[in-house]
Structure formats: C-alpha cells, structure tokens
Design a protein around this nucleic acid. Structure first.
Length: 271
DNA sequence: CGTGTGCCCTGACAGC
DNA sequence: TGCTGTCAGGGCACAC
C-alpha cells in the first residue's frame, strides 16, 4: 500500500536507473487505470531524456528534457517493476532505456498517470490546492492550528485532507496520532496548540523512520529481477485491533470507522 | 463552504 | 472445491 514513504523509496530507486537516461521505447498495454493515459504519452516520452525524478505528496514526478513531466500515482496497489523477468498482466505501462526496463504494475488500477508541462506543474489540479509537505518546513503546529480553527470534523479526517497536509495516508495518520497521544475522534478545532506541537515532530519521525526502513528495500533495485519491495515495519496501532498497546501503561488497541475507513487507536493513551 | 457518502478495482482471506 | 461476502487503499464526484 504505497503511502508517502513508499513513493519516496520508489522515486529514489527509479532515479538511480533513470536519471540522465534516454527513454527509447514506450509501451502502453492498457491505457486506463483510474483515468485514461494521456493520448500522446508514447510520443511525448519516446526519445526523451530523463532529467530527474521527484515526489510531491504521494505523487511521483519524472521530469524530461522536453519541458514535460510524467506524473504517476500508485493508488493502492501500484508499483514499478524494474527489469522484470516475466511480463505481468497488470503491467499497464512499460518504459525502456538502453539498459533497463520499467513496468508500472497496478492490479487494482487505482493509480493513474498524467503528463504536464513542467513549467505549469504547480497549476496541475491536484497540486494547486495542496497543503504543505509533511517533511518540509511549512508544516508547523501553527499551520495546523490555523487550518483546524473552528473545524468540528475529527482530527483524524482533517489530517487525511490533502489540502491541509499533503501526503499523509491512513497508516501514518493513525501512527502519528498514537505517538502524540491524541484521540482520533477529537474535533480538529479542539486540539490544543500544545498537542499539535507534539504531533508535528511525530508526523515527521514516523515518515522518516519508514523511509529509512524503505531505504533498505532500495537494495532490491540492484537485484537482477529488480523486484520492488515495500518496507515492512512494526506498526504501533495500524492493523493491531485487540492487541496490547506497546506502551507499558497502555490499553488494548481498538478499531472503529471514520469516513468509511478504519482508525486504530489506544483508548488509554489517546484521550 | 463544510460535511458525509459512495464509487472506482482486484485480490486476499474467512467462512460455509 | 468452489462459492459468497468483506475488506483494503486515495481521490473525487455528488448531495445536502
């Protein structure tokens, strides 16, 4: 399940093989994930040189020397397979350089691909309204306090709103709230500045730890099969329903639904 | 404008 | 063994 750390890991892994390389061949096997691929994707990328890769929220960006950037979102089940030995029926897009091939594989097809003029990236609809990066300087307790002011919606759902912070998903919101000792049900507007001052560093640290863990899977890129491994970590609350809290004086982890999605938390540590 | 709901899609898994 | 039901994930359209 690609969240920000997995996208970051993916982008770093792709960069090692793609930066500075020319794309010699582009193959579209199935042109629709959640949205149709741009009709000119083959023409736009064939022969283009990859200048760099980067990430914005949970989107990966592949910048070419033609002032065009390919944006990809991995959805829920998307990943890039590097030098796959066998084709997979869910390889929707395949890029080839002189030495390597890269297959965008997404069984559930929740992801998507778009092409944008690099000079107009910030106007791309999903980016235009997006909040600050959780790992950047712009995410502060003050920013959250301002964004949350007067809001009755739960702090859990507000943190999933990409307009407030861009790049947090269900796993890391649950984990960060547990670390900061904040009840996910609490109305965002009623979370104290003091609590937000605890939360922001926890958001950063849980993401950074996961990127470090994911970093170990970067080694997988060097393997001949190029299989992309997602980091596996021990979560404190996510998916741990009915298990004991990792804190000494903690309770039993519970699960409930918010906005149609599961939230896990410790009723004793998060009040 | 704020808030809530359902849908997109497939595979894994549980239970019969 | 095969069937059915449920769930996971992020983003968006749409209704109130």
């Amino acid at each position: 399940m690609p969240e920000l750390p997995e996208v970051e890991t993916t982008v770093r892994g792709l960069a090692r093989f793609l930066e500075g390389e020319r794309i010699l061949r582009v193959q579209v096997n199935r042109p629709d994930m959640r949205r149709r691929f741009p009709p000119d994707i083959v023409q736009a990328l064939t022969g283009a040189r990859v200048q760099s890769l980067s990430r914005r929220a949970k989107y990966g960006l592949l910048h070419t020397d033609r002032d065009r950037t390919m944006i990809f979102h991995l959805g829920m089940s998307g990943r890039w397979r590097i030098d796959p030995e066998e084709p997979d029926k869910h390889d929707h897009l395949v890029l080839e350089t002189a030495d390597h091939s890269f297959a965008l594989c997404d069984p559930r097809r929740f992801g998507w691909v778009d092409l944008v003029d690099t000079s107009a990236l910030e106007a791309w609809p999903a980016f235009a309204a997006m909040g600050p990066e959780p790992l950047g300087d712009a995410l502060t307790a003050r920013h959250l306090h301002l964004a949350f002011a007067g809001r009755k919606q739960s702090v859990k759902l507000m943190l999933l709103d990409q307009r407030i912070v861009a790049g947090l998903g269900n796993i890391y919101v649950c984990e960060a709230l547990w670390r900061a000792g904040i009840n996910p049900r609490k109305a965002a507007g009623r979370v104290s500045l003091k609590a937000l001052n605890r939360l922001v560093p926890e958001i950063r640290s849980v993401l950074e730890q996961s990127i470090r863990d994911g970093g170990s899977s970067l080694r997988d890129y060097a393997r001949p099969d190029g299989e992309l491994g997602y980091f596996a970590t021990r979560f404190d609350v996510y998916g741990r329903e009915e298990e004991d809290c990792h804190r000494e004086d903690g309770g039993v982890i519970r699960r409930f639904a918010q906005g149609g999605r599961s939230t896990w938390y410790c009723p004793r540590c998060q009040r």
